[in-house]
Each structure stands twice: as C-alpha cells, then as structure tokens.
Amino acid sequence: MEGQEKLLEIHHLHKDYGNGAVLKDVSLDIHKGEVLVLIGPSGCGKSTFLRCMNGLEQIQSGEIRLDGEVITDPKTKWSEVRQKIGMVFQSYELFPHMTVINNILLGPLKVQKKEKKEAEKEAEQLLERVGLLDKKDAYPRQLSGGQKQRVAIVRALIMKPEILLFDEVTAALDPEMVREVLDVMLELAKEGSTMVIVTHEMQFARAVADRIVFLDGGEVVEMAAPEQFFTQPETERAKRFLDTLSFE
C-alpha cells in the first residue's frame, strides 16, 4: 500500500458514550482502491468505528481526514462529506413509502440536483447491474432481504462516493441470500472501489479484503493481509477470536 494515495486518514480517534470508551486511540489510513475489512467480537466497536467515519457518531477526540481535509471539525458540512462516503446498513433502511427507483433517485435529485432523466438512466443501469431492473417500480416491502440490500447498495453507489462503508450488510439476511449481496460487493472490489466492510463472514472477508483490521475492546489489536491474519495471527487475542469461529 505504500506510496498509494491516502483517501481516509483516521488519527487517534476516541469515542465515548459516557460509560467507558468504545474506541480508544484508533488510527488507520485507508488508501484509494483498498478494501479494508473490520472484524472482531460483538461490541468491540467496529460498527461504531464505521459510523464515526461518516459522522453518524460524534467523536470525543481525534481527527478524520478525507482527501486530506479534516472532516471532524464542528464546521464540517456533513451533507457534502456524506456524498463522498456512501453507507449501507445491516437493516437495509430503504424508504418504505417510495418505490425502488425513487429510493435510489432521492439523493441524486435532492442532494446533487441532477436532472431527472439523466439520473433515472444511471439508476436503471445500476439496477441492471445488480439484476433488479424489473423491480424498479416495486416497493421495498415487496422485495426479499437480498434484493433490498442490493437496492440499498445501488442507492449508495449512485452518489458516486469515493468510499463505501458496509455495516454488517448480510447479518440480517437469510443464508441463501447472503451470496447475492456478497457477489455484488466482490464485483465492486474488483472494479477498484474503496470499501470498508464490517462483517462476520470470515470466508468472504478473506476473499475480498486487502487488509484485515482486528478490533477488540475498542482498540486496533492487529492489522494484516488476510492470508497472514487467518493463518498466522500474531496476537493472542486474534488467535482466540479465530479459534471461537472454527470447529476444529
């Protein structure tokens, strides 16, 4: 990764909900085109960490820079920053009162003030790519979980973000639908999208990640290439975590 452009820089991030620190002095650089996978036990702060990156959580101290610009300033215009940092949620959070196409178009039309025809064309192309063009006039309620999550990915993609955050996006899905969502993400990774993924799917993490970040107790415990992390974890905590996931 050396020499590559740093897209997101996180320095000494500290997050506290008032009853103990959730994130303690976390520092991390995310490079352009990199796929970073955050793993760790439940409650280790990985989702919180992700949510700090687009300002859904306030931080107590530290600094985050996007393209070299500080975005953790009180003066930060989050509505602008968030167009560059897309996010997909565990529970999809599609807007139930809008059709699929209108869910996708809300950002381009209201935030980016794009022309409707042009935006619609883009939305249809993206829907086609995830195999859901025939669902464009459906309501979220009429879709399966996997379909909803693919629409949610399209809704984030259409803003042309520089970086995409995925917060346990397959955790609420039935097992047979996990694959269709992961496939979309794998394809995005292949195309060179910059992504930060929180997941419990270890095989997927291994397949998609350029780097694995292992968080425990609000700290970055280990950071390594996936092969190395999964075969020869350096820390005791990472070993223990990986052991709990295997049946050997």
Partner: peptide, 18 residues
Amino acid sequence: VEKGQMESALAIGLNRFQ
C-alpha cells in the same frame, strides 16, 4: 418511524430539513 430511516437518509447526504 424506524430510527434507522433518519440515519440512512442522512447517509445519502440529505440535510436535516430534507
């Protein structure tokens, strides 16, 4: 209204009024 709706709407860059 689900709490997540607010967050997902913010996440696509809508301001609080929108």
